[in-house]
Amino acid sequence: MIQLFLRDIGLSVRSGGGFGLALIFFLIVVTLIPFALGPDPSALAVIAPGVLWLGALLACLLSLDRIFGLDFEDGTLDLLATSPLPLESVYMAKASAHWLTTGLPLSLAAPVLGVLLNLDYETGKILCLSLLLGTPALSLIGAFGASLTLGVKRGGLLLSLLVLPLYVPSLIFGAQAVRLAGQALEYDVALVILSAISLGAAAILPFASGAALRINLR
């Protein structure tokens, strides 16, 4: 499992597809926002938490179909299915690799990009924390969606359609925490629920996803 995890990280770093692309996409989204909404700093500071969360979420979506897609095409996944490693663990390894290569860098980049949107330092810290707690759920849900749409040709759009409604709770609580922090209000509850969603996803989705993988490999 650990080897698979390391291999997936290695692959995504080397091929340059998922790793850099998500970050650059995130940067571009954040750059485009002031062009669309005007450069007024106080207005930007108000929408910054939402924009940064949304940008991170969309950047996360980009690389989802790669989680299982390539391995499914070249037959690696079939080999993994026959190996003693249960598919639930395969899912966990791949989801964590996805998180480490997209969720983690996105979380760390978000406060830096927040500077562009006039987000102050303290709120930036909370933003980073909320993304760190929330993006695991995004990777886990995304990998589940990817395992559902495995057999569908050009399933990218379908994948987004399935995954985005599932992202709603994480987005709500994540952006909410940052917004509350920006107004110097209590934000602990939102952060706790955000991590609860991530943990809950880690507890339930491996089984759902394992089942979906088995169905697709039948």
Partner: peptide, 11 residues
């Protein structure tokens, strides 16, 4: 989502 949305709007 139902509960999340409740929380969100009350906030």
């Amino acid at each position: 989502s139902r509960y999340a949305v409740l929380f969100w709007n009350q906030g």
